[in-house]
Amino acid sequence: MTQRIDYQKQAPELFRGLVAVNNLVKQSSIEESICDLVDIRASQINGCGFCVDMHVKQAVMHGERPLRLHHLAIWRESTLFSPRERAALAWTEALTQLSPQGVSDEVYERVRTQLSEKEITDLTYAVMAINAWNRINVGFRSVPGSFDKALGLDKAGLA
Rank of each mutant, 00 (worst) to 15 (best):
Y125G: 14
V143D: 02
V143R: 08
Q58P: 05
H70D: 12
D154T: 05
L95S: 09
L95E: 10
K155T: 06
I40R: 03
I120Y: 13
L158E: 07
F147S: 07
A156T: 00
H62D: 10
Q114R: 04
A129N: 10
P100I: 02
L67A: 12
E77K: 13
C51D: 03
E109I: 06
P83Y: 03
R135N: 04
G63M: 02
N137L: 07
G47F: 06
L80H: 10
Q97R: 13
A156Q: 05
H55P: 15
A42G: 14
L72G: 05
L72D: 10
F81V: 08
G63R: 00
R65K: 12
E77C: 09
V127M: 12
V127S: 13
L158M: 07
K149A: 07
P100C: 05
G47D: 08
S43R: 08
L153P: 01
P83G: 00
Y108C: 09
D148C: 00
L151I: 03
H71P: 06
L89K: 07
V138S: 06
A126V: 14
Q97T: 14
V107H: 04
D154M: 01
F140I: 13
L95W: 10
R86L: 04
R68M: 08
H71G: 12
C51R: 07
L158Y: 02
A156C: 04
D39C: 10
D148K: 02
G152V: 02
F140C: 12
R135F: 03
I40D: 02
A42Q: 08
S82P: 09
S43L: 00
Y108V: 05
A132I: 09
H70A: 15
W91L: 05
V127W: 01
Q44H: 10
S104P: 08
K118N: 14
R41Y: 14
F147R: 11
E109F: 13
V56G: 00
A59G: 04
F140Y: 14
S104T: 13
T92P: 13
I130G: 04
R112A: 15
L67F: 08
T124P: 06
R141K: 15
L115N: 12
L80E: 07
V60R: 12
D154R: 03
Y108L: 13
R86V: 04
F81L: 08
S104L: 11
W75N: 15
F140P: 08
S78W: 07
Q44S: 10
E93C: 01
L153F: 03
V107D: 14
R65L: 11
M61P: 05
E93M: 06
P100D: 10
E119F: 01
R84F: 03
G47Y: 06
G63E: 04
